[in-house]
Amino acid sequence: MDGFLLTTTEEFLNWNRKSSIWYLLFASACCGIELMQTGGPRTDLDRFGAVPRATPRQADLMIVAGTITYKMAERVRLLYEQMAEPRYVISMGSCANCGGLFQSSYSVLKGVDKVIPVDLYIPGCPPRPEALADAVVKLQAKMMKEKYLRTVRA
């Protein structure tokens, strides 16, 4: 029953979740440097509560930054499977969105959403740190709207 108690608890839980997004350090190529630079002093990701974690078991956000090749795609899938729900994926940069400028290459996966479901796409080559911070803010807005307790999980 969608009562007052359930919705308020859900809002409280969503506020908790959005204020401490721990992301997985997954820096594949050039976008990885902008990811590190975003965690640096000027555009600080830590003010959103986001700290980098080394293992997917402790992360709830995976920022796929950089080109994914066929050899790497299977590992990306394994990393995604290891994350615990609720989990989100941001695809950063045009190589992860759609293959980027390597369209005629024989070994580049044209878009990481062929192997994992993506929540947010950030265009750019590489995207500015402000764009990544904006993406985290949009993800936070998405998390606030989620009917977290009222969905039946598969």
């Binding site: 090749t69 050899k71 005629s104 290459s105 024989y106 070994s107 580049v108």
Partner: peptide, 14 residues
């Protein structure tokens, strides 16, 4: 190695 092999040398011919 080879997890980031994007075939840049082949693209150079295209």
């Amino acid at each position: 190695v080879g997890y980031l092999h994007r075939g840049i040398e082949k693209i150079g011919e295209a």
